[in-house]
Amino acid sequence: MNPIIQVRNLTAQYDEEIVLDDLSIDVYPNEIAIILGKSGCGKTTLLKNIIRLYQPSSGTIEILGQDVTWMEEIEFNKILRKIGVLFQNGALLNSLTVADNIAIPLEQHTDLPPSLIRRLVREKLHLVELDNAGSLLPSQLSGGMRKRAALARAIALDPLILFGDEPTAGLDPVTAAALDQLLLKLRRLLNMTLVIVTHELTSIQRIADRIIFLDRGKVIFQGTLDAAKQSSISTIQRFFNP
């Protein structure tokens, strides 16, 4: 099977500090890949390099079979329409209601009539169990609600790939479990591929197909959760048995 995301020899740095060091990973269609590692090991930097919020120093990134590393912005925008990103703090636009936030990609990237866009927004809100929150402003939502609203916006265009930066961090166990179940459901319904950065072990156990373990900017392990737990690498052992 061809990977849906292929990263080769990626090096990224902030000024002189190397954050990602000659890193290579593959993500396969319809899998849930978890990027794991200690704080500051480069997980979020990797994610932001893949979606080109940061530009790498060297290496290549392929998404959906296309090299996007130095792709023209117009071309890359077409790829972005097939990608959803769930940011750590939601990143909802504070000046817009939740419904308006979700409608942004639908209004900008489809030719759907307004009545259908309104229906789709309600559909997404229902999916994330925020049926009555459409008219609220992000500042009126709790942390968990904000994350779910952000997820609704991220999946507005039914993306092929969903990137999530700590989607369940800071949520209570019940809400976190519900969010995980929702991610699994979306993967099944939309044949979505998920790349998730998280520290939450319970969440990893619920959703992970494959673990990509980073340490100081390098991949030190790729494999299933069970294989990771049995790994002899001390960093990984300490992570699962602190």
Partner: peptide
Amino acid sequence: IDSAGVAL
């Protein structure tokens, strides 16, 4: 079918 199809 995607979510827009269901909405249709």
